[in-house]
């Protein structure tokens, strides 16, 4: 099978905003548009977690988004890469320690690539996606399934999903 090759050529993105200010999300839209055109890396923004390779998360993760984010992560098939975009994904940013905020994406799910900035430029986003594609390849070369699956589920506290 040449699955790895195909994965490299067409990583599909699942985008979820977990309570950010919209600034990152419009930059994602801008990078789909003709000037930056993220499609030249084969990346498409798709709404289905079961078909996605890269989970692109923006925002500091509010209490209500927490469960949705966890479920989206678990629904994505292996191998998968998580990209946290923007300053508030990195530990909360300006919203750190607010009463309804969980202080960053990595408090909920493991993160592979961080894109800094408020808001990050589309070039930075493309850079992050390209790095995510590389990580996706090393992950798919490992060709092993998670052995401690139950442990991870326990740690995430998402047994009912």
């Amino acid at each position: 099978m040449k699955l790895n090759k195909f994965r490299k050529k067409s990583p599909w993105i699942l985008h979820y905003n977990t309570g950010g200010c919209n600034g990152c999300d419009i930059e994602i839209l801008a990078s789909l548009a003709p000037k930056y055109d993220i499609e030249r890396f084969g990346a498409l923004n798709k709404g289905n977690p079961k078909q996605a390779d890269i989970l692109l998360v923006t925002g500091p993760v509010t209490k209500r988004c927490k469960d949705v984010l966890r479920r989206l992560y678990l629904q994505m098939p292996e191998p998968k890469v998580v990209v946290a975009m923007g300053a508030c994904g990195h530990g909360g940013g300006v919203f750190r320690n607010f009463y309804h905020v969980e202080n960053g994406v990595d408090n909920i799910i493991p993160v592979d690539v961080w894109i800094p900035g408020c808001a990050p430029r589309p070039e930075a986003l493309i850079d992050g996606i390209v790095e995510a594609i590389e990580i996706l390849q090393t992950k798919s070369k490992e060709k092993e399934y998670i052995r401690n699956h139950n442990e991870i589920i326990d740690k995430l506290g998402a047994k009912d999903d």
Binding site: R64, V68, F95, F98
Partner: peptide, 11 residues
């Protein structure tokens, strides 16, 4: 509609 509530008015 409360998915994005962060508590800005309190801060």
């Amino acid at each position: 509609l409360g998915y994005v509530h962060r508590g800005i008015e309190k801060a």
